[in-house]
Structures are given as C-alpha cells and as structure tokens.
Computed example of a mutant assay.
Amino acid sequence: MSFIASNFSINNFPIRKQWRSLVNIFLICVICLAITFANSLSNNVSAAREPDSSQIIDRFEIIKNKMAKLRFCYNESCFYRNVTSKIIPPSDKNPHYTAEISAAVERPSASPDLADYHFVYADDHWQLVKGEEFTDVADYVFIGDRYEIYSVHNSHTLSGNLDKAKEDGGIKSGYLPLYYEVLDRGIERVK
C-alpha cells in the first residue's frame, strides 16, 4: 500500500506537472471565453448605434435630393435632370451599403452630358468615393479628392487636387459642389 501511495503522491514530479498543465489549460479557456464574451458585447453595442436600413436609405435620398437642386456653373445654367439612384445592401462580398446616383447634366452645349457618382456607407456616414462625368468635349474622372480630365480637343489629360481646383474655379463639374456643398469634403453631413 505504501508503494501505491508513494507513486501517486502530490510530491511526485509527474503528477505536479500534470496539475500545473491542467491549471494552465483552464486559465487559457477562461481567457478565451472572456475575449469571446467581450467581442459579442462590442458587436451588440456597435450594432445598436448603427441606424436601421430605412434610415440609411432615407439619408441617402436626402443627399440625392440636394444634389438634384445644384447649380454649378457661374451663370447658373448647369444643373441635373433625370436624377436616379440605386442602393445596394450589404452582402457576403461587400459588408457595406453602396449606392450610385446617375443623372443627365444640363449644360450650355449641344449634346447631352452624363454623370455617375458612387458612394459607400461606412463609419455611420455616406461617403462619396468616386464619380465620372462625360461631356461632348471632355471626360472627367474623380476618385476621392483627386480628379483627371481628358480633353478630346487636344488629347491632353489634366489632373490634380480638388482643393486647388475649387480655389482656381476652373472646373465646371457637378462633382465639386456635391463634394463640398452637399457633402463635407465627400462625407455626409449628419445633423
């Protein structure tokens, strides 16, 4: 009997090492459970702050309606007509709402001009990420606060920063007032 007791005593090194390993595994499991619990709480808190889909869509409609009222030439003769929008809800491939506004642009020219603006809903705001405008004399491409204009007359491309273009006042584009007046540097103004 003393042989059996001595082989299974607490002072026996292999048993002490096993207990220490079991305690370490238990602590690791407790830490993993705590992290999982904390993550689920933070997800619930962030989900509680994000507006429901109807509010997100309504906020985008406000942007679209403000854009439809823009006048962006010096003589007030440039404006949008036939303004339409499309909102795409989040999916497995894209976790954010995305949206597009398309319109015909009325300018003092003989041919119809077209515009497309692309938005993403992130960080609880609609954000203008890019836009294109096509005229009879130039194609405008905007990405964030950058622009590139390709002129068909001289096959020349101009590019630059919107802040400088706004300061100079040389670009008659609907993207600029959308970026600065309707939005706050491309980000939705939330009241």
Rank of each mutant, 00 (worst) to 15 (best):
N39S: 13
I57R: 08
A115E: 04
F26S: 14
G131T: 01
R107F: 07
A68F: 08
R146Q: 06
R71G: 05
S91Y: 01
V129P: 05
D123S: 11
V120M: 03
I25H: 14
R185N: 04
N94R: 06
D52W: 07
A34K: 06
N65M: 02
E100P: 01
N24K: 13
L41M: 15
D92Y: 11
A99W: 01
A38P: 14
E76F: 09
R59Y: 02
R71S: 07
Y117H: 07
T84I: 05
D58W: 08
E167S: 09
S6M: 11
F8C: 12
D145R: 01
S111Q: 14
Y175V: 01
S102V: 14
P90C: 02
L41E: 12
I101Q: 00
C78P: 07
E50K: 12
E50C: 11
R16F: 11
A165G: 03
S21V: 12
K17Q: 11
S151C: 10
P90A: 03
D184S: 11
L176N: 00
C29D: 04
N24M: 14
I149F: 06
S109R: 10
Q55P: 04
A99I: 02
S159E: 09
H156G: 13
E133N: 01
A122E: 13
V30F: 08
A115W: 04
V137D: 07
W126R: 04
V141T: 14
Q18V: 08
A138V: 05
C73M: 03
G186K: 00
N82D: 08
S102Y: 11
H96I: 10
E100N: 06
Q18D: 05
C32I: 15
S77L: 09
I28E: 07
F79S: 03
L33E: 13
P14Q: 03
I25N: 14
D124L: 14
H118V: 15
I87N: 01
T84F: 06
I15N: 07
Q18C: 08
V141M: 09
E167T: 06
I187L: 04
P108D: 15
F8R: 11
C29S: 07
D139R: 14
H96S: 12
Y175E: 00
L162G: 00
L70C: 03
V190T: 12
A99V: 01
I31W: 07
D113Q: 12
S53R: 05
G160L: 02
W19F: 14
N43C: 12
I62Q: 03
P90I: 02
I56D: 00
K93I: 12
N11Q: 15
P177K: 05
L162K: 00
L114Q: 13
D168K: 14
Y150M: 15
C29E: 04
N39C: 13
H153Q: 15
D168N: 06
Y175T: 01
R49A: 13
I15T: 10
T135P: 08
D58K: 11
R189G: 06
G174Q: 04
E132S: 10
E148P: 06
S46E: 10
E148Q: 11
I63M: 00
I187G: 03
D184C: 11
S9C: 10
R107P: 03
V23W: 13
F72E: 01
H153W: 15
F142E: 00
A48H: 04
R185L: 05
K66V: 03
E76R: 07
V83N: 00
S21H: 10
F26T: 12
P112D: 08
G131Y: 02
E133T: 02
F134D: 15
D184N: 14
I31M: 09
